[in-house]
Structure formats: structure tokens, C-alpha cells
Design a binder for these strands. Structure first.
Lengths: 203, 203
DNA sequence: AGTGAACTGGACTCGTAGTACAGTAACGAG
DNA sequence: CTCGTTACTGTACTACGAGTCCAGTTCACT
């Protein structure tokens, strides 16, 4: 093993970097094995095919992303115990984090696979689906907690509001990629934050 | 010519349908020529390569999309001359339209190319960029018009607010694709509509 | 009758995914 | 010390899609 520290992880690291930069299809196995300094045979020893690689990448990414949200909102909760203010602080932290990320926020991975789903098998698609449903549940829970204290100024579908967090991030990342600007995603999150301030404003 | 009604357009129709369903990369030239009942040589007579096809598709799509927004908000203006209400009506019409669309709203095309941009040349990427900048300008103009009458409850960046229309649509379509639900995009637009109602609410 | 646009069809190159399998180095269990 | 397993290397092969080249054909229009 030595400094090779688990070849499988090294493959995933290199693949993820390349996929975030260029997309899944544009990332060749040739390129991955060159980067990881292994043979093609070695790659296929760890991953049956590119689909298995995609699945493993998604699994790892979703875990990281969930942990990131856990930490972010735990930190926000430390700063303010009120659920609304906790959410507002968490979103600000998220926006700042996105701004500091050089090029590719992993969020891309979800949208990226969503738009190339015919390239993937059912396992990958289902993983993608469950990740988004998980975020829906997470944020819906937080919004419901807020709504118990601050009555919403307008009736909103709480599932849809939960989805809006993911949607605004994904949409912002699409804009950012297409426009080649660098802070669209964080700006979109800040606008969404303003939305929440208006929606849950005390009367 | 006869019923063949311009081979080039037929290629674009078939390619667009396939790309919306499966993504650009998953759409083979083989499949396009089979659908259009032409030879491979015929395809390359019209399009130098897949990039040229992508560019032509994007050009056509952007034109259609712009016309769609023109018509939609012209219709909304007929129904109510006030810029805020015109916007609210327009968004409702847009949400309804998205719900009625079977599987693939063309909006996909923008996000799709954004996430596979290494597959495309600079011309395609620039086209994509200009389209989004065009929508930014369109909606920013409308929001400024609204803001002149209804002072915003919170200060917002008008460029970002303009982008949010595209972002919410694109983000909603990503969710819709990944979740395999059918009304996420329209729900997200309706939430955004609520945002505008709160933001520009008379005091 | 002649020209050019819009093709057909076939042969070829190249890059990438994926298969198959034989061989090997390292290591822990018996 | 050997045996088996894990983690590979390396080579050779198939299949497929993109893209090139080009010679020949059909048809409309001048």
C-alpha cells in the first residue's frame, strides 16, 4: 500500500476532479489510469465499468454533501438557536462557501448525472433521486420548525420550499457554468434567503 | 423536396427530440440519419460535425424560447397593464405551460450543454452564454419597471433577480429530471411568484 | 445540354469502452 | 515454508461511434 493509500480512493479522487471540470462523458478511463498511475486492467479490477465508477462517485459525494449540510447548520445553530435565524445564518455560510470554491462545486454532479441519465443505469439514477429526496426532507423539516414560530405570510407547499434550496443551488451552478461568472450560485442563495426573510417576517 | 420539407430541418427536429430525451452524447449520428432516412454522408453534408449540429440546435431553440417569452408576456400584458401583475400572470402562464409539456422542456438544452461544455466548442458555449444574458436583461428590465411603482421591501440585486427566473426554471428542470416527478419546475416557478408578491407588496 | 446543390454508399482511420486472460508481487494464515 | 488470495500489470482482442474522403447519382434550373 505505502503512499498509494488505497488505489480505489485515488481513482475516485482523480475521476471526481476530472468529472467536475469536464463532465462525465468527457472523462476517459485512459486519462484516469494515467493520473492514478495504474494500468487499464487495474481500473477494471476495481470498477466493473464506468457505471460502477459513477455510482461510487455519487455515493461518496452524497455522503460528503450531507455531512457538509450537517456541519453547516450545526454551526449556524450554535450561533443562533432560533430556527429562522439558524436557517438564515446557514444559508449565508453556504453562500460564502460556494464563493470560495474555485471552480467546481460538487453540486454539479447531481445536475450532471441528471442530464446524462441515459448514460447511467438505474442504480445511479435512483441514488441521485434519493439524495434530492433526502435534502427535501431535511429542509422541509427545518421550514416546518420555522413555520411553527413564524406564520408564513403566504401559503407555500413545504415540500416545494424544501426542494427550492436544492433547486436554487443547482440552478445557480448551471448559470455559473454557462456564464462563466463565479458568484451566481451564491447570489441566488442570498436572494432565496431574502425570500425566507419576507415569507417568515413577523407581522 | 416534396414531403421531405428541407432535410436540414428534419435532422434538427429528430436530433432535438432525441437530445431532449436522452442527452446530446447519447444521441448518435447513426440514429439521427436512420430517423431522418438519409445517409451518413447526407448528414455531414449539412453539418460539419456534431458541434455544428449542437450550434444549430441551440440557435433554433433560443429563438423559439425568446419568441415564447415574448408571446407569453405580451398575452399577460393584455390581461393586466400593471407591470407587477403582468409579471405574476406571465409566471403563472409559464408554470402552466411547463406542466403541460410531456417530458422535455427545451430548457434542458441550456443546462445540458452547460454540463457537457467540454464536448462543445467556443461557439456553442458563447451562444449559451448570450442566451442567458439575454434573459437576464429581459427580466431585469421588467423588474426595474415594477420597482419604479412598487418599492421593494428588501434591497435586491436586479441582475441576480433577473437571473433567478432562468435559475429557478433550470433548477426546477434538474429536479424534475432527477426525481422523475412532473411538476417540480412549475411548482418552483409558483414559489418564485410568491417571492415577487412579497418583495413588491405595497406597504 | 450543362451546372451545381443535395445527396448515396462504401471504405477507411481513430479513439474509447469493455472483455479476456495469463502472469506476477506481496502478504497473511496454516 | 507454502498456499491462497488480493491487487494488480500487460497484451491482445471486439465493438462502436465520430469523422474523413471521395466517386458517383439525381434532379432542378438556366
Amino acid at each position: 500500500m505505502d503512499q498509494k493509500l488505497d488505489t480505489r480512493s485515488r481513482i475516485l479522487d482523480i475521476a471526481e476532479a476530472s468529472v467536475l471540470e469536464k463532465g462525465f462523458e468527457a472523462t476517459s478511463i485512459e486519462e484516469i489510469v494515467a493520473g492514478a498511475e495504474i494500468s487499464r486492467g487495474g481500473f477494471f479490477y476495481h470498477f466493473k465499468d464506468k457505471n460502477a465508477l459513477a455510482r461510487a462517485m455519487l455515493e461518496r459525494y452524497i455522503e460528503v454533501e450531507n455531512k457538509l449540510y450537517d456541519d453547516l447548520f450545526a454551526r449556524a445553530r450554535e450561533l443562533n438557536d432560533d430556527p429562522l435565524h439558524c436557517m438564515l445564518i446557514g444559508l449565508k455560510l453556504l453562500a460564502e462557501m460556494l464563493e470560495e470554491m474555485p471552480t467546481g462545486h460538487p453540486g454539479c454532479v447531481i445536475a450532471s448525472t441528471a442530464y446524462q441519465d441515459r448514460l447511467f443505469d438505474e442504480g445511479v439514477r435512483e441514488l441521485n433521486r434519493q439524495a434530492i429526496l433526502g435534502w427535501r426532507k431535511r429542509f422541509r423539516g427545518m421550514f416546518e420548525e420555522i413555520a411553527e414560530i413564524y406564520e408564513p405570510r403566504e401559503a407555500v407547499n413545504m415540500d416545494a420550499l424544501g426542494d427550492m434550496v436544492s433547486g436554487v443551488v443547482e440552478g445557480g451552478l448551471v448559470l455559473q457554468r454557462a456564464l462563466r461568472e463565479h458568484n451566481n450560485a451564491s447570489e441566488q442563495i442570498m436572494l432565496f434567503r431574502t425570500y425566507l426573510k419576507l415569507l417568515f417576517a413577523p407581522k
